[in-house]
């Protein structure tokens, strides 16, 4: 039997690693703890963090969502296109719903056809990007409203608003997963889909729900990116799905489903952000990032695999 402190260490290993890395960065890089630097990381990784929060429940049900980046682009383009008609508030809501619609399509296809989630979302990734490009004719669409553009720059007690949104979302998701029956259903479907079905859970409903949630977070990410850039860009969010998957995996979730926690994902996002910033500040090639991220993802995976086999041996 694992003693409590050891158990906490293995449960919150990612959080501890993120804190250690933060301390290391603060000590070795004088420019790290500056307001400018932290704000930069906070914005970019809040957006990634939001979609990683959306990706987590999908991966918990042993599925995957590769269409997040394209849903971001659709949301960005929808927002920019409809803002003149609906006003920014209405357009933002519509944009987030557009992201949710991408998720709904994914969820329906994954639940009611026998196409693997990987292929479904690979297809909708392509379709979504095509839609964003077609709707915008391939051109970025400006959204020149100072109030909207300032939205993303709001701060509360000097903390960027987007970061608070991310943390709030994380708290909400953690509550949902831990406190409501649907959270148990998500873990159950990922843990043993057949037995979950035999117990009477509505497996398709759960899968559609997690995909819609993933799409909604991508929609929100699209709105934030548009606000930051002042344009709705049809190529925004390209490759973000891979970063969100990386963050979830670094956060200790299993791609086979049923294992993973919100705190781990938050830590995974922060780890990626701090690493990113350290590489930038250290003056080495910015292109080293990919190598380090790749190695970190593989190491995290190998570590969790080792953990699993150790647990199995017990």
């Amino acid at each position: 039997m694992t003693t409590p402190p050891l158990r906490a260490l293995s449960n919150y290993g990612q959080v501890i690693a993120a804190l250690l890395l933060f301390a290391a960065a603060a000590l070795t890089e004088p420019a790290f703890l500056t307001r400018f630097n932290l704000t930069g990381i906070a914005f970019q990784y809040s957006v990634i963090g939001l979609i990683a929060l959306g990706q987590l429940p999908v991966i918990l049900t042993a599925c995957i969502d590769l269409s997040q980046g394209s849903a971001i682009a659709i949301a960005a383009v929808v927002l920019a296109l409809t803002a003149p008609v609906l006003g920014l508030a209405g357009a933002s809501v519509l944009a987030i719903l557009a992201g949710g619609a991408v998720g709904a399509v994914n969820g329906l296809l994954v639940s009611f056809t026998r196409i693997p989630a990987f292929v479904v979302t690979l297809g909708t990734m392509s379709v979504g990007r095509g839609l964003a490009l077609t709707l915008s004719s391939g051109q970025p669409i400006p959204v020149r409203d100072p109030a909207f553009m300032n939205l993303v720059r709001l701060r509360f007690f000097d903390v960027p608003g987007t970061f608070l949104v991310f943390l709030f979302g994380a708290g909400l998701l953690a509550l949902l997963l831990a406190q409501w029956p649907v959270g148990r259903a998500v873990y159950a479907v990922g843990g043993h889909e057949e037995n979950a079905r035999l117990t009477g859970l509505n497996v398709p409903k759960v899968k559609i729900l997690v995909y819609v949630l993933s799409g909604l977070t991508a929609g929100l990410a699209g709105v934030l990116l548009t606000s930051r850039l002042g344009t709705g860009h049809p190529l925004s969010g390209t490759g973000y799905e891979l970063i969100s998957i990386s963050a979830v995996i670094i956060g200790g979730a299993s791609l086979f489903g049923g294992i993973g926690r919100v705190s781990g994902v938050v830590a995974g996002v922060l780890l990626l952000g701090i690493l990113d910033s350290m590489i930038n500040l250290s003056g080495t090639s910015p292109y080293l990032q990919g190598t380090i991220k790749g190695v970190v993802v593989l190491a995290a995976l190998a570590f969790s695999q080792w953990n699993l086999s150790r647990a199995a041996a017990r």
Binding site: A188, G190, G191, H192, N195, A196, L198, T199, G258
Partner: peptide, 11 residues
Amino acid sequence: LDLVPNLNAAE
């Protein structure tokens, strides 16, 4: 057994 392995007994 029709249990979900990653959930605890009460769950």
